[in-house]
Structures are given as C-alpha cells and as structure tokens.
C-alpha cells in the first residue's frame, strides 16, 4: 500500500483547524438572526472570529480536539490492518504538531498516553464498498458535548412519550433542554431511533457526517427534522446558553432495526465546533473536502 500518512496528517489538520463551510455558513446566519448587541450574538461573533483565526494560523479551533472518529470506506483488496497502522501514525504525528491535544487518558491510572493512541483510541469503523476509491471520513467529537448526549427507552412516562414519532419528538426536545448551554450551543443534534443501546449511539453520531442542508430521503424523518430544528430553537437557550434564537443549527435523524422489546431514542450532541473532513484517494490522487 502506498504511504498515505502525510495525507492523513493533512486530513487531521484540516479537521481540527478549518471548520467546514456549511457549518460556518450556518453560524453566520445564526449570528445575523440574533438580537443585535445581545450576549448570544456576541458569542457568535467571537465564534466566527475564532474560526477565521484558527484557519489562518492552523491552530485548533477548540483546545479540546475530541475523540478522532474515522470511518474508512475501501474497495475490495485493501488491507484494513495497513490502513489502520498508517492512520494511527498520522494521529501521533498530528499530535506532535499540536493539531491535536493529547487527549487519550488511560482510565484506571489517569495517565495521558501523550500521543492520542491507545488500544481503543482513536475510534475506527471500516467498511468495504463497491466504489473503486478510498474514502476516509473524520470527525473530531469534543468531550463537553459528548457529556450531554442522552438516551431514552420508550415508552417514557415522565415525557408522556410513546413508541412513535411523537415520542421521538418529545425525547429529543427533552435532551436539548437538559443540555442547556453545557454542550457549547448552537449544536447539531444527531438522533437514532431503534437499535440496541450501543448501535443506537453509534448511528446517532453517524448523522454528524451528513451535510447540514441535506434532506432526509425518508419524508417522515425529513418532516420531523425540520419541525425539531424549529421547536428546539423555540426553547430560547441560545448560543452558549446565553439566551437567543439559535440553540441548534440542525437536527438529523435516522432509524435502525430494533428488537420487539426495545425502542431507543438516542440524541448525540455536537457542539458548534462541528469538525469533520473527508479524504478521497482515487487513481493515485488525494483530495480533502
């Protein structure tokens, strides 16, 4: 396999220091909608200036560079072992270059491994696909917003939430309310309906790879996404919890099969620093979007 390590380092640098255009545009729209002179608008002005400065100086947008989550799609015949080895080397190198903060702590000893590597760090998902090129999706998932993710098992008496889309709606609004500003609003909310507890959390986070302005192919979910985005913003929590019109930038929902006994609704929270980038390797050429 060709040495792609420098390209993976570049993928990480771009993800950590250069916010995707759709996220930045959404933050700019949010800024323009907030009350002039309000603390919420002030927070968004600081955020936008920070995004600009981080891009110019190639320094992390947020000092918490999160869990690097790699989704690797490869054509038949590729070695996932070799890919993993190269990406891990790139992670260590990106850490040495201060694109990433050393963020991997051995839980029992409290020791920071110093290079963002551990038995289970970073996180990988490998999938062979029918395309003839390699695609690597990377997101950096911060800790503050990870802490406010929530999972509900329906029916839920407190929320009067049944096993239907109305129940999903109630659970998601409750999750946004519980989070307040703690997850660094405005957020993208990734929702999974169904699955087991673990697969539901994974599916909820996979929503963060979607462009903010895409339309869900399932019209029922498309309608719920639109409604929940509007209703979550009616809560008035606002940027950083300072109050205001923008609490979420978008809500993204997917479903997965469940057991007859289970009906999970999982809401993962992505802070405004919604850092994701994609590397494509095709015919010997690399592009990063």
């Amino acid at each position: 396999m060709e040495n792609l390590i420098p390209h993976f380092v570049e993928l990480i640098r771009r993800a950590a220091t250069d916010l995707p255009a759709d996220v930045e545009a959404a933050l700019r729209r949010a800024h323009d909608q907030e009350e002039p002179g309000s603390a919420g608008q002030g927070a968004l002005a600081v955020i936008l200036e920070n995004v600009r400065m981080s891009r110019a100086s190639s320094t992390p947008i947020c000092q918490d560079t999160g869990t690097p989550i790699f989704y690797v799609y490869y054509p038949a015949g590729w070695s996932t072992l070799a890919l993993k080895k190269q990406i891990r080397e790139a992670v260590a190198e990106a850490t040495a270059k201060a694109y990433l903060r050393p963020n991997s702590v051995e839980t029992l000893s409290g020791r920071n491994t110093g290079n963002n590597l551990g038995d289970d760090f970073p996180y990988f998902h490998f999938e062979e696909w029918e395309e003839d090129y390699l695609k690597v999706d990377l997101m950096l998932k911060g800790g503050g917003c990870e802490n406010v993710g929530a999972q509900y098992s329906l029916p839920d008496t407190r929320l009067d939430a049944d096993r239907d889309l109305e129940g999903v709606r109630r659970a998601v609004l409750d999750a946004v309310h519980q989070a307040q500003g703690l997850g660094c609003a405005p957020a993208v909310i990734g929702v999974a309906v169904g699955g087991d507890r673990a697969s539901s959390y994974i599916k909820s986070k996979e929503q963060f790879y979607r462009p903010l302005d895409d339309i869900n192919p399932d019209p029922r979910l498309a309608a719920l996404e639109k409604r929940l985005t509007e209703e979550a913003n009616m809560l008035g929590i606002g940027p950083m919890g300072f109050g205001g019109k923008t609490t979420v930038l978008s809500v993204k929902i997917d479903s997965l099969e469940r057991l007859p006994a289970s009906y999970f609704v999982t809401a993962s929270y992505m802070c405004w620093a919604d850092r994701r980038r994609t590397l494509i390797y095709r015919d010997g050429a690399v592009t990063i979007e």
Binding site: N50, M53, G142, C184
Partner: peptide
C-alpha cells in the same frame, strides 16, 4: 464570567 466555549484560538490571542 462565561467565556465562549471552544473559542480557543481567539482567547489564546
């Protein structure tokens, strides 16, 4: 005093 979470480069400056 609430600083803007995530505004790491700007605050460092």
């Amino acid at each position: 005093l609430h600083a803007v979470g995530g505004a790491a480069t700007l605050i460092a400056s």
